[in-house]
Design a protein around this nucleic acid. Structure first.
Ligand SMILES: [Zn+2]
Ligand SMILES: [Zn+2]
Ligand SMILES: [Zn+2]
Ligand SMILES: [Zn+2]
Lengths: 132, 132
DNA sequence: TCTCTTATCGAGAGTGAGTCGCAATTGGGT
DNA sequence: ACCCAATTGCGACTCACTCTCGATAAGAGA
C-alpha cells in the first residue's frame, strides 16, 4: 500500500504510516478529531492539517473513503470496509445497510437515468421503529 | 400559514412574510445566500442571522425543509416540493428522483430494521452515464 | 387606541470544520 | 552522499453557521 503511494510519486512518511495503522486498527468510522488523537498519541508533533492532507491523499489513492452520517463532521474508514447507513434523525440510532438493500434503487436509477449510485457517501435519514 | 405561526405564539413579521414569498416564487432549492439576496432586494436591512433564524423557525413549523446536495451549503425549499436527488460526484449533474424510485429500499429497510426512510434530506451520490 | 409583554431583530462576536501559504524539513531516486 | 520535489509544521484564513445582547415592534388585552 505504501509502495502504491510511491508508484505515484508519493512518499511513505512516518505520519502516513501511522495514520494507516490507526485506520487499520479501528474498524469503524472515525472522525478526523479521533484519528488525530490516535496519531498524536504515537507522534505528538503531527499537525492536524497534515492529517487532513494525508486523508485527502489516501482517499485519492482509493485506499480510504469518507462518509457523512448526519450533520456532524465527516468520518473516515478503509475503502474496503465502506458501506451504507440508515440514520434515525430523531434519536441518532444507526444501522449499517448491506449493498443488497439498495439493489432495487440501483437498478431503477440505472434504467431511468443511466445513473450508477454509490449509497455509501451520505447516510439515508429517516425514523427508527421506536421514533416513527 | 402566517396564522399557523401565530397559533404557536409566533409573530408574522415583515422579514418572515418576505422570506415566504421568496420561497414561493423560487420553485427550486435555494442556498441561504441566494435567499438572503432575494429578501434583501426587497428589504435591505434584513440581517443574515435573521434569515437563518426564520428558516429554522419555519422548518420547525413543517412549512419548509432543507436538503444537502453534496458538500456545499444546505438548500431550502417548501416542504411540499421536497424530493430526493441523485448527484454525480464527478460532474455535479443532478437528477430529481421521484419517491417510487425508493420503493424497494423503503420496503427492505422497514422489513429488516423497522426503519422508515426519508431519502429527501441527503442526496444519493454516484456517477452519471457520462462519468461512469 | 394605548399599554405591556415578550417574540423577534440587527449587529457583531464566536465556533467548528476544513483549507491555504510559506519557509523548513525530509524521502528516496541516482 | 547529493539533490530536489514532496511533505510537514504552523498559523492565518474561509465558509457556513450559531450565539449574545440590547433595541425594536407584534399583537393580546384594557
Ligand atoms: Zn463527502
Ligand atoms: Zn430513533
Ligand atoms: Zn440537514
Ligand atoms: Zn457526471
Amino acid at each position: 500500500m505504501l509502495s502504491l503511494l510511491r508508484a505515484r510519486g508519493g512518499r511513505a512518511t512516518a505520519s502516513r504510516r501511522i495514520l494507516l495503522e490507526v485506520l487499520f486498527d479501528s474498524h469503524d468510522h472515525r472522525s478526523v478529531e479521533e484519528l488525530a488523537a490516535a496519531v498524536q498519541s504515537r507522534a505528538p508533533d503531527v499537525h492536524l492539517s497534515t492529517i487532513y492532507r494525508n486523508l485527502e491523499e489516501l482517499e485519492e489513492l482509493g485506499v480510504i473513503a469518507h462518509t457523512h452520517l448526519g450533520h456532524g463532521p465527516a468520518t473516515y474508514q478503509l475503502a474496503t470496509s465502506a458501506h451504507a447507513h440508515l440514520l434515525c434523525e430523531r434519536c441518532g440510532r444507526r444501522y449499517e445497510a448491506p449493498a443488497e438493500l439498495f439493489a432495487g434503487l440501483a437498478r431503477a436509477a440505472r434504467q431511468r437515468y443511466g445513473f450508477t449510485i454509490d449509497p455509501r457517501h451520505f447516510a439515508i435519514l429517516g425514523r427508527c421503529a421506536e421514533c416513527a
